[in-house]
């Protein structure tokens, strides 16, 4: 079947298999930031934003994304300028192996969009569906708290 999907601002009209997942489609189109790490929606490494909301693209059919707007980690930077969440992750040293990082960042972006002034507890709740084996999560939470501050300051400026 054919679907129309807007990825990071670019419209695609693509022929898909009915059983194809959104993750497979994205990676086939070259958006490799989203990772396949569990195939069961348990780990969050495949998280992308579908119409602004975080979804596990490994358990979502591409057909379900017909007509949708999708944002991946590749689409976060604005003309080369990193998103505040990306900057905060870098400065906090949050990525270690980096495999969970794109999914973690996309979850954080959507979360901070809805909750610009969170507590650490709320951040922990928000990323509890994103698994990281390297970091022990402390620097990830630090980074998201710092990103929230950056976004608020940018908004105020």
């Amino acid at each position: 079947m054919e679907i129309r999907i807007c990825i990071n601002g670019t419209d695609h009209i693509v022929e898909i298999d009915v059983g194809e997942t959104l993750l497979d489609l994205l990676r086939w189109l070259g958006y490799k930031g989203a990772k396949n790490a569990c195939e069961t929606g348990n780990c969050g490494a495949c998280t992308v934003l579908l119409n602004g909301r975080p979804v596990a693209s490994c358990i979502m059919l591409a057909a379900q994304a017909d007509g949708a707007t999708v944002q991946t980690v590749e689409g976060l930077a604005d003309e080369g300028k990193l998103h505040p969440v990306q900057e905060a992750f870098m400065d906090a040293g949050a990525p270690q192996c980096g495999f969970c990082t794109p999914g973690m960042i996309m979850t954080a972006v959507a979360f901070l969009d809805a909750k610009p002034d969170p507590t650490r507890h709320e951040v922990r709740e928000a990323i509890s569906g994103n698994i990281c084996r390297c970091s022990g999560y402390v620097k990830v939470v630090d980074a998201i708290m710092d990103a929230a501050r950056r976004i608020r300051e940018e908004g105020a400026a």
């Binding site: 980690v73 590749e74 930077a77 992750f89 990082t101």
Partner: peptide, 13 residues
């Protein structure tokens, strides 16, 4: 800071 930060936060690694 880690030298691999940009690659890992942009999905380009």
């Amino acid at each position: 800071p880690r030298i691999d930060g940009v690659e890992k936060v942009t999905g380009s690694a």
